[in-house]
Structure formats: structure tokens, C-alpha cells
Amino acid sequence: MLKEKLASKKIVLASASPRRQQFLKDLNLAFEIRLKPVEEIYPNDLKGSEIALFLAELKAKAFENDLADHEILITGDTIVCIDNQALGKPKDKAEATAMLQNLSGRTHEVISSVCLKSTEKTTTFYDKTTVYFKELSSEEIDYYIKNHQPFDKAGAYGIQEWIGQIGVQKIEGSYFTVMGMPVHLLYDELLKF
């Protein structure tokens, strides 16, 4: 249904994330990947969803003059929030360890935002899911970091990986939002777009 509705459009995904790419394939959409380096810096006064929305829009702005009339650009961002603090991607093993220790035995929010941009308009939206982690041992954290290298993931973990399987007790909200894209909202917004 979505594919037919977008038949005259070309979808451009500005993300190197294999998960986001798979979501578009699962929606049966043909798309092209275009990447531009963007320094993910946001104003200090932004909180939670404001950060995720700002970063998705920032990534879309990099393509401001590069879109053809028939193209729809999709950018996205995911952040993990705990104690009103946003956790981005860890720079190294020490930072990943600290993030996972902070999440251990606690509840946090994962916020994933999406920006749809064409030459005529821009739409930005987000979704939020609450994740409950069990108490993680230092051995579990070390094992996960060593074997899964979660340096490309907000909060230093991927829910679909080993740590999600053994550590996540429950979630409230969309599993796909935690993986990096609120697919249910993307589908609805693309239909409207």
C-alpha cells in the first residue's frame, strides 16, 4: 500500500544504520542511501525529545539544496535518557562501561526521532519507549562490550543484541523505537506526506 502511494517519489535515507535500512526494506520501499557528515552538537538547554528532534532536523538540513522535486529524505536520531541526561554513542570502552553501569538495574527512556524532508515541506516526529534493565554484573557488561562493540549505539547497547536478550526485563512502548526508528509512525507519516 505504502509503496503504491509513493510510486512517483524517490526515498532517500540519510543513515548508515543497518537497522534503519532494514526497516525500510521491511516496509517494501525502494530507497537510496546518501550520507553527509554532520557534527551532532545541540544546545545545552534542550532535553529529551527536543534533542532527538533537533538532531534529526540538523541531519536533514545538510541536504537543504541537494534534493530533487520527487525526493523524500528520511533522517533520524535515537537518544537514551536517564536522570534527565541524554546518553549518546560512547567514545570508548570506558564510556560504554560507565553508560551500562548507569543503566543497570534501572529504568530509562529511548527516544527515536524522524525527519521527513522534501523540497516543499519538512515533518519531524518522535516516539518514546521506557526500558527496564535488570542488574547487570560487571562480567556481563565486559562480555557485551568486548563481543558486540556497541560504539555506534546510543546508550551503548542494542536491544536486539545479547545484552537486550539477557538484560531487558520489559519495555513500555515500541520495540522498533528502541532499535532506532518508530516504524509505525514512519508508515503513517509517509502516507500523509
Rank of each mutant, 00 (worst) to 15 (best):
K3D: 01
K3E: 11
K5L: 06
K5M: 07
L6C: 09
K10I: 14
I11C: 14
S15G: 05
S15W: 00
S15M: 04
A16P: 05
S17C: 12
R20S: 13
L24F: 10
K25S: 07
L29R: 08
A30D: 15
A30H: 02
F31D: 07
I33S: 14
L35I: 15
P37I: 01
V38I: 15
V38E: 08
E39K: 04
E40S: 00
I41H: 10
I41G: 00
I41A: 04
Y42T: 00
P43S: 02
D45E: 15
S49L: 11
I51W: 09
I51F: 14
L53E: 14
L53T: 12
L55D: 06
A56P: 07
L58M: 05
A60M: 12
F63H: 15
L67N: 12
D69C: 00
H70C: 07
E71I: 05
G76I: 13
T78G: 07
T78V: 04
C81W: 07
A86M: 06
K89P: 09
D92W: 03
A98E: 13
M99R: 04
N102Y: 11
G105C: 04
T107D: 11
H108S: 13
V110A: 03
L116V: 06
L116C: 11
K117T: 15
T119I: 03
E120P: 00
T122P: 02
T124A: 14
T124F: 01
F125E: 13
D127T: 14
D127C: 04
K128S: 05
T129Q: 11
T130P: 05
V131Y: 09
F133D: 05
F133C: 05
L136C: 09
S138D: 02
E140W: 12
I141A: 06
Y144T: 05
I145M: 05
K146P: 00
N147Y: 06
H148P: 03
G155E: 04
Y157M: 07
Q160H: 09
Q160Y: 07
Q160K: 03
W162G: 06
I163A: 14
G164R: 01
Q165G: 01
G167L: 02
Q169C: 03
K170E: 03
S174M: 06
F176S: 12
M179T: 07
M181H: 09
H184P: 05
D188S: 13
E189V: 01
L190P: 03
K192M: 07
K192I: 08
F193W: 11
F193N: 13
F193H: 10
